[in-house]
Write a protein that binds this DNA or RNA. Structure first.
Lengths: 256, 256
DNA sequence: CTGCACTATGAATCGCTAA
DNA sequence: GTTAGCGATTCATAGTGCA
C-alpha cells in the first residue's frame, strides 16, 4: 500500500517549495506515474489532499488530478471523507470553517486486497452506554497508549458486537506534537494500513515528512518505506524509529 | 436561491428517465445555463449530487460537471459535505457503505448574500469549563511559535452561547416518506434556506419531486417555485401545500 | 486510578495596506 | 493596476500535571 499526504498547493512554503495552484497537476503526475509502476496489482494508493480557496473560489486542481490520473491508468475506486472534528478556527463573511479533507482511493486493478474485519467498530446502544461511563481521561490515555485505535478498556468490547464502518472517518487532528507539523494523525494511516494490508506487507509514503506513516506501520508490524527530501525530517525519523523498536521490546528487525 | 437534487445518473429509473452516466454532463449543462440566467447576482445555487459506482469505480461526471459549469460562468464557491448518519445498509467485498453526499455551492458573483447567524449552533460544554479562568496564553496567543501567524483572544468568547457551524452537515436521512423518491430530508433545504435567504425571498427547486424544498420554504416564510415534470408529484404537492398553509394559520398568501 | 484544571495548537481565509 | 504581507477572527480536542 501507498499512503501519503503530499504538500498541498501553495501550502507549507517554509518546508516544501510551495507548488503553485496552476502547476500542481503537472508537478504531481510524474510522481503518480512512478507510484503506478511500483505498486503491486493487489495494492492500494490512498491520497490525502484538499483544495485551497483562491479568490473566494475552491481551486479545481484536485479534481483535474483525478481525471489525469485515470488517464495514466489508475482506477478511482472510492473517495473517503476525513471529518476533522477540531478543524482550524476562523470566521469569514462568505464561508464556514473547512472541516473535511479528501482521502482518494486509487487502485491498479479491481482485485485489490481489503481486510474489512480489521477495522470493525463496536456498535449498539449497550456499547454506547458502557463507553459513556468510562472517563474521558481514561479513554484518551488508553487509546493513545495502544496505538491500535482501541484502548485497553475498549479492546474488551472486541468480539462482542461489531459493525463495519462507512466511508466517513471521524478523527481529530493531532494537537500534542511539538516541533514538527504532522500532516495527519497517526490513526489515519493506521486505519488504512489495517484495512488494506496484513502483517509483513510493505507500506510506503513518498512524502514521509515527520514519519507518521512509518511509525504507524511499525506498530502494526508492517515493513515500511519512507521517502523524504529534507534531511532534517529524515534524521528525526531515524532517531525516533529506535524508540519505537524499544517500545516493541525487540531488536531491529526486518519483518517478512 | 436555487436548491435541488437532480435525478442521479442511472438511478431511480422507474420515476425519472434514468440519464446514463456518459450523457449526464451534456444533459445537465443546458439546465444549469438557464439557472445561471434566472438567478439573482446575490443568489446561491446548491446542487446536491453524488457520483455512483460503475464497474467498481467512482464515475467522474460530477467533477466533469463542476469544470464545465465553471466554463459557463459559475463560481464554484464551496463544497459542503452531507454526512448521512443512518446511511443505506449493505456489505460489499471491496467498499464500505457510502455515508456522504456532495452539496456543491455555486454563485454568480463573490458578493452573494449569506446570513450565518441564522444557522448558529449551541457551543460545546468545553467553553464553560475553560472560560471559568483564562490563562495568559488564552488571552493573547504566542504567535512566535511555528510561524503560524495565528493569534487569538479567548476573552471574546465570554458570554457567548452560539458558535458557527462548519462545512460538514450531520443529518439523518428521512425514512418516513414512501411512494416517492425523496431526495433529501427537509432539514437540508431548511438549513440552506436559512443560510442564504431572508423572509420573503424566492427559493426555487427545478426538480421539485415530492416537494421537500417547497415545504421547507413555506415554513420559513419564503416564496418558492417548484418545477416538476410528473403530474403525480405536482398534484400531491399541491394537495399537501394546503396543509402547510393551515399549519401557518393564515390564508393563501403571496409574501413580499 | 479518577477527576479536574490548565495548556497548546491545528494543511484557514478575508480584507486592507504597502510596495 | 497588481501582488505580497500582515492583522483579525475563531472552535474543539489532545496532552499534562496534580490533588
Amino acid at each position: 500500500m501507498i499512503i501519503t499526504s503530499p504538500p498541498y498547493a501553495d501550502q507549507r512554503k517554509d518546508t516544501y517549495g510551495g507548488i503553485s495552484v496552476d502547476k500542481y497537476v503537472e508537478w504531481f503526475l510524474p510522481i503518480s506515474q512512478e507510484l503506478l509502476r511500483v505498486l503491486k496489482p493487489t495494492g492500494t494508493f490512498i491520497l490525502n489532499i484538499k483544495e485551497r480557496v483562491l479568490n473566494g473560489e475552491r481551486s479545481t486542481y484536485v479534481i483535474e488530478l483525478i481525471l489525469e490520473m485515470k488517464k495514466q491508468g489508475w482506477l478511482w475506486t472510492e473517495e473517503f471523507i476525513w471529518h476533522k472534528r477540531n478543524c482550524y478556527p476562523g470566521k469569514w463573511p462568505n464561508r464556514f470553517r473547512d472541516a473535511w479533507e479528501r482521502l482518494l482511493q486509487f487502485n491498479k486493478t479491481k482485485q485489490f486486497n481489503m481486510y474489512q474485519e480489521a477495522v470493525m467498530i463496536p456498535m449498539g446502544d449497550w456499547a454506547k452506554a458502557r463507553l459513556r461511563k468510562l472517563s474521558d481521561t481514561d479513554r484518551i490515555r488508553d487509546t493513545s497508549k495502544a496505538g491500535s485505535g482501541f484502548g485497553k478498556n475498549i479492546s474488551n468490547w472486541i468480539g462482542r458486537e461489531l459493525a463495519y464502518p462507512t466511508n466517513v472517518l471521524h478523527l481529530a487532528t493531532e494537537c500534542g506534537n511539538k516541533g514538527h507539523s504532522a500532516a495527519f494523525p497517526e490513526e489515519l494511516p493506521s486505519w488504512f494500513i489495517k484495512l488494506f494490508t496484513k502483517e509483513y506487507d510493505i507500506v510506503m509514503d513518498p512524502f514521509m515528512g515527520s514519519g507518521t506513516t512509518v511509525f504507524a506501520a511499525q506498530k502494526l508490524r508492517r515493513n515500511s518505506i519512507g521517502i523524504e527530501i529534507f534531511a532534517d525530517y529524515y534524521n528525526t525519523v531515524k532517531k525516533s524509529l529506535k524508540r519505537v523498536e524499544l517500545y516493541l521490546l525487540e531488536e531491529e528487525t526486518v519483518y517478512g
